[in-house]
């Protein structure tokens, strides 16, 4: 299993007046090459679960093993290193820096690796060609369309060639044509061996035939559909 969560609980601001329990006793296993979807309304705990799978923060309780490493045992520095090598994120609002060019946005995760500009460009150009955005290479990201932004976000998630792709509400700001396009790209990534976790309540995603499993998340608890 590439992702193994066992009795995960996440509590924010523990012991304080504003304590919130975001996840209760969640267990989940995802095999390599699978594509699953976490379905739930806003505030149901989807983003928190993605945060734990994405090594952004460790769980309060429970055992989380991502790509063979147990998160609770990793200090913050190594959590970041593990995330850099293992996880590709696609965010709801893409989280692209609008003043940077498309190329610079895609290569951001490579800067701390000490890769030369030539190597970074080479890697990014392969992805830009696959995602048909090579003509936007030198455009500031703030000047391109929503669909293109989505593909920039996908290219940035793939630039480190991570085994796991996490996408949080990836179609929330796309029309149906672009949403379908996005799911086709996900199918291709799955076919290439990537493990994909999508968090969405968009029927175009949740009803997608390529999904291996759909998990409903309500009030921080998982229910298998």
């Amino acid at each position: 299993m590439l992702i193994e969560l066992e009795a995960i609980t996440k509590i924010y601001n523990q012991g304080q007046a504003n304590e919130v329990q975001a996840l209760h006793d969640v267990s989940l296993q995802v095999a390599k090459g699978n594509m699953i979807c976490l379905r739930g309304a806003s505030g149901s705990g989807k983003s928190t679960l993605l945060g734990i799978i994405g090594c952004v923060f460790p769980p309060t309780r429970g055992r989380a093993v991502i790509a063979g490493k147990q998160l609770a045992r990793l200090p913050d520095r190594f959590l970041t290193l593990h995330r850099r090598e293992t996880i590709g994120f696609i965010f709801q609002r893409f989280n692209i820096l609008p003043a940077l060019t498309v190329l610079d946005n895609i290569t951001l995760p490579l800067l701390p690796l000490g890769m030369s500009p030539r190597q970074r460009k080479q890697r990014a150009r392969v992805l830009m060609e696959q995602l048909a955005i090579q003509h936007r290479e030198k455009f500031p990201a703030g000047q391109i369309s929503g669909g293109e932004l989505q593909r920039v976000a996908i290219a940035r998630a793939l630039i480190n060639d991570p085994p796991i792709i996490l996408a949080d509400e990836p179609t929330a700001h796309l029309d149906s044509r672009l949403s379908r396009e996005f799911m086709t790209i996900m199918d291709n990534l799955k076919a290439a061996g990537k493990t994909i976790v999508l968090a969405s309540h968009d029927p175009l995603v949740t009803d997608h035939p390529g999904l291996d499993q759909i998990l409903d998340i309500r009030d921080g608890s998982l229910h298998v559909s």
Binding site: T80, R83, N95, L97, L108, P109, P112, R156
Partner: peptide, 15 residues
């Protein structure tokens, strides 16, 4: 926001 994005993309605090 830029710092948060960089960190989630794998930049260390030191970076």
């Amino acid at each position: 926001r830029e710092i948060a994005i960089l960190k989630i993309l794998g930049w260390q605090t030191a970076d």
